[in-house]
Design a protein around this nucleic acid. Structure first.
Length: 590
RNA sequence: GGCCCCGUAGUUCAAUGGAUAGAAUAGAAGUUUCCUAAACUUUAGAUGCAGGUUCGAUUCCUGCCGGGGCUACCA
């Protein structure tokens, strides 16, 4: 139980006792007291004034007095200013909290709640390597899954690989035309990049064929249809659907190259999956779903044979679920996949980490499942996140302004290396240790940068400014952790009981550390790792102030030393476990 | 056209309807015989515009201005 929820209960008790007023603890507003006032937590009184026909000062004083009298082991003082009741929590409370938790390895976790949640994230296309935008998706999905797991959910991370369709055929055609048998092995190019290069080649060739046809007098629309390379691609798609062996073989070969490349990147960034679905294996499932829906009159067939759902009563339009030629659209596949996932896992919740351009699609998906009366429909949640943009605007693959994931990681590692060498603090590290440290710092910086922003909001990535290891960054927090560890290598807290008067930097830290479990809960409830990122940063900042102002090893007394070692210990644990939930490692030294 | 999202210091981000709108960075000024200066301290700087609801609005409502997305028998 957190101190804030305890305060709410005690306040509710006081209202009951003093005014015989039933207040719901959930409706009380408790904030951290602003630094310019005396106190730790503050109760906002305004909402009760009318009801009780009293003045803010009178109410505040009466409640404050009751709290201090009845719960003296928690509250030591109160003051009321302009409708805000500021409460001071006793040092004993904080010391007890510290004593109970500084060794607790499970601090911030919750026991199993027997709820099953699927988190679908990453979900790449197999025609090009992953870029910065995908990284935001990967980091978010992984982190949200870990946060949920941490508070007791049975979590299944999954990915749906888009391994079929016209875009894959484009890479395949271009490879046939231009590669002359080249492979990732023969060229030394990472598989996903290799295939991506042929996707680019396709577009170049396509563009030039179209402009040639236009030059010969063909209308542009027609030229786009008639360009030989496009016709070949469409034929290849048909061949693929017919299972033509040569095409299947090429498809499997090129996809494998991509998977080999993805594996390297996934391993590097720490993405992992309990289950991978492949669209080639699931894209037909939706048809059955549509047939069932037709029988139940949830869908209807138009004269041309296409199948639709009428969502006008829900304020939306009619939505196509099956083409007139009987083939699946995107929605069909997603319906089938949702059903399949539920069959496989019987989840309580299913979270889709998908960019906000698909808000409408996800809304419709859930609506259709609800209309179809599916038991899992209400458990579907769209973790909608904003695009990552560059200072110059949106990333566009056609204009070559995409920040490639592997490239940006390499660049970050190079900067981490230079900076670390400059500082010269770890000259005694073995080469392997050094390489690991550079990776830890580089990925820490990148992940923290992408996770510290509210997922819902789009964000700007400035390649120059974003590679910063100072201030509100991952490395700042990693550095704080390393500093603490360097002390704890020399001496550990002995576990002696504490009794002392807390100094401000000590209390500031304890107050924040106590909030950790609530913060994790909040991050989980909101599917929002940025809450956690901001919190960890504040903890690190508080520790650095504490560290600058007070000596731990040369504390003024044995008791103070023990106290500060315990605080340092818990701080390191909170930082490490919080950063872990963001997928960020923390070094022992840096 | 219809629907949705976003406009906060120079810049990148915060702020369950609550006190004098917080950080970081860039700027200015300091701190190292003292546990790691990737740090700390001080300083200056912002709610697009106009109304409304409220004891109280960055937050809720309306209009305007500016930016983005969706509205495909693409995925």
């Amino acid at each position: 139980m957190s101190i804030v929820s305890d305060i709410k209960k005690m306040v509710a008790t006081s209202f009951q006792k003093l005014y015989n007023l039933e207040v719901d603890a959930a409706n009380l507003t408790i904030n951290q007291t602003k630094p310019e006032f005396e106190g730790d937590y503050t109760l906002v009184l305004f909402s009760f004034l009318k009801q009780l026909k009293t003045s803010p000062d009178k109410l505040g004083n009466e409640i404050g007095e009751a709290l201090v009298n009845d719960f003296g082991e928690i509250f030591t003082a109160h003051n009321t200013i302009k409708g805000f009741l500021n409460l001071t929590i006793s040092d004993d409370y904080w010391l007890r909290f510290l004593q109970e938790n500084f060794k607790n390895k499970k601090y911030g976790t919750a026991p199993a709640n027997h709820q099953k949640v699927m988190v679908e994230y990453s979900s790449p296309n197999t025609n090009k390597p992953i870029h910065l935008g995908h990284l935001r998706n990967n980091f978010l999905g992984w982190s949200v899954a870990e946060i949920l797991k941490n508070i007791g959910y049975d979590t299944i991370k999954c990915s749906i690989v888009n391994d079929r369709g016209i875009h894959i055929c484009k890479s395949m055609i271009a490879w046939q035309l231009f590669a002359k048998g080249a492979t990732p092995e023969s060229t030394g190019i990472k598989g996903d990049h290799f295939v991506g290069d042929y996707y680019v080649k396709f577009n170049e060739e396509y563009k030039s064929q179209v402009s040639e046809l236009v030059k010969k007098g063909m209308p542009e629309k027609e030229a786009e249809r008639e360009a030989p390379i496009m016709k070949a691609t469409q034929k290849m798609l048909l061949d693929w659907e017919a299972g033509e062996p040569e095409v299947m073989e090429l498809w499997e070969k090129m996809n494998q190259w991509v998977y080999d490349g993805f594996d390297v990147t996934y391993k590097r960034i720490g993405s992992d999956f309990d289950k991978t679905y492949y669209e080639s294996q699931t894209y037909l499932l939706g048809k059955k779903f549509v047939e069932e829906g037709l029988q139940k009159n949830i869908f209807f067939r138009k004269d041309d044979g296409s199948v639709w759902i009428d969502l006008t009563e829900k304020g939306l339009d009619e939505k196509l679920v099956l083409r007139k030629d009987g083939t699946s659209v995107y929605m069909t596949q997603d319906l089938g996949l949702a059903e399949e996932k539920y069959k496989d896992y019987h989840y309580n919740k299913s979270i889709y980490v998908i960019a906000d351009e698909q808000n409408y699609h996800m809304k419709v998906l859930q609506l259709i499942l609800q209309e179809a009366g599916k038991p899992y429909a209400d458990g579907i949640e769209h973790l909608s996140y904003g695009l990552v943009e560059l200072p110059s605007g949106k990333m566009k693959s056609r204009e070559g302004t995409v920040v490639d994931a592997d490239d940006i990681i390499d660049e970050m590692v190079a900067v981490a290396k230079n900076k670390t060498k400059e500082l010269g603090k770890v000259n005694d590290f073995e080469p392997a240790e050094l390489a690991e440290l550079y990776d830890t710092i580089a990925l820490g910086a990148l992940k923290f940068f992408l996770l510290r922003v509210d997922p819902k909001k789009k964000m700007v990535f400035n390649p120059e400014e974003s590679i910063d290891f100072h201030g509100f960054t991952g490395p700042f927090i990693q550095y704080t952790h390393a500093r603490i560890k360097s002390i704890l290598r020399k001496e550990n807290p002995e576990g002696d009981s504490l009794k002392d008067v807390l100094l401000k930097p000590e209390k500031d830290l304890l107050l924040q550390l106590e909030q950790y479990p609530s913060i994790v809960e909040q991050a989980a409830a909101e599917h929002n790792p940025s809450v956690l990122a901001i919190y960890i940063f504040q903890v690190a900042k508080s520790f650095n102030s504490f560290y600058a102002e007070l000596s731990i090893m040369k504390a003024e007394s044995k008791l103070k030393k023990e106290l500060r070692l315990q605080i340092a210990s818990l701080t390191a644990r909170v930082i490490a476990s919080g950063m872990h939930l963001l997928g960020i490692k923390v070094p022992e030294r840096m």
